[in-house]
Design a protein around this nucleic acid. Structure first.
Lengths: 222, 222
DNA sequence: ACAAAATTTTAGACTAATCTAAAAAAATAT
DNA sequence: ATATTTTTTTAGATTAGTCTAAAATTTTGT
């Protein structure tokens, strides 16, 4: 059996490892993301290592074993499916769903996950553009680029975000930046590196460098 | 804050009190329904009494206070709404939903409960015929009778069940007894008190006395 | 290369929820 | 009406997950 808490640790280790391109996750990072103290994390890592869910060398950080990764992917799959449900069926905004999905992701029922997936039409991406692991526990690979790495005047499609905070998402809403919209960088300010962007070939909008770095985009039709 | 465990105790106390027409619930009964030992229940009762969720006199059993009842009704409301979701939207059978709803009932989000309720069309009954408490925490009163208390040849409508075990529900499925069907008792066997029943004015079926005692029915059109 | 700083682990303690065993109270049966 | 049985509570332990404080290890800065 895997407890609620263990599932959370495994999920966070997966997501942080992914963010670090496969590099080990540190104790302090985990403490930050689990909202606990480093000492508590150390204890939990010992326990997860005993269960063979993580590769753990003291002081050297951790990565997931295959067993741990399967559990993490199952939780992430549920999280993202529920997020689709909340937005597509219940009408929530993409900025309102994270905390609810954090709870729903731990509901334990193979049949429920299967039925929910079918009910939603077997979606491949969640409302933030993140890929949904398949039922076999495989994470689809995606290759998005930061908008800030795209050259001037190259048309790209908005595919995802690398920050999920409500305030960031609400900021995008205000600027009418949604998944699937077209973006073309017109100019980068010499002064503050902020961006002037043509949105959907129609309106020009201005976004900070920080926004541009957290928008994930793709060249037309891939 | 009310923990998952406390919510469960309060819910069970509510349901058992209801079953006993408002009489106190005993420690042993709670132990049975919480799958724990009497000693553990005693501890929890002390704690719930301290929080003013129950009226507790040692050795005398417990009832809920208004505060405790509100929490219990909130949990029961969520449980029954999720059951409707599982059957109406995901296609589960009424015999498959209890364990999943036991988990979903503890998801804590006012907005989610509200949206789910609307999504489902504000249902008043769950798939077993049990009434769904309203958003103000009021349980609708229903007046059903046991089929076994109905006179011969009186047409009644099937409204609910007083046992929720999968095996009982599957037994009803096999006999095509569903919520809303019409039942008319034709004969009660001298020998084993089993029932011969006219179903939907068409087929005659035979059910045991035990089944008849656990079917809740109502006179036509009330 | 080594001292200082930062990070991580260990030690010992706490809380929530559970348990077993024993004591206390209530119910029952002759 | 009192002895026996049943039920309930208390006492003392256990486990999971957390904490603070102190010790151990690694990293950083000169």
């Amino acid at each position: 059996m895997t407890s609620f808490t263990e599932e959370n640790y495994l999920k966070i280790i997966y997501l942080l490892t992914e963010r670090h391109n496969g590099n080990e996750v540190s104790t302090n990072q985990l403490a930050e993301h689990t909202q606990t103290k480093a000492a508590s994390v150390s204890d939990m890592l010992r326990k997860l290592a005993e269960k063979n869910y993580i590769n753990y060398r003291k002081y050297q950080g951790v990565t997931l074993t295959d067993a741990g990764e399967q559990i993490a992917l199952g939780v992430i799959r549920k999280h993202r499916l529920w997020e689709v449900f909340l937005v597509e069926k219940l009408g929530f905004g993409w900025d309102e769903i994270h905390d609810i999905a954090e709870q729903l992701e731990h509901i334990d029922s193979k049949e429920l996950t299967k039925s929910l997936d079918d009910f939603l039409g077997n979606p491949k991406f969640d409302p933030h553009g993140d890929p949904i692991p398949d039922s076999k526990g495989k994470m689809p690979s995606v290759s998005y680029q930061k908008l800030s790495d795209i050259p001037l005047n190259q048309s790209v499609v908005m595919m995802g975000v690398s920050v999920h905070s409500p305030s960031f998402l609400q900021h995008l809403d205000k600027n009418q930046i949604t998944l699937g919209c077209t973006l073309k960088i017109r100019e980068i300010s010499e002064f503050d590196k902020s961006y002037s962007i043509l949105l959907d070939e129609k309106n020009t909008i201005f976004v900070s460098n920080e926004v541009a770095r957290n928008l994930l985009v793709q060249m037309q039709e891939s």
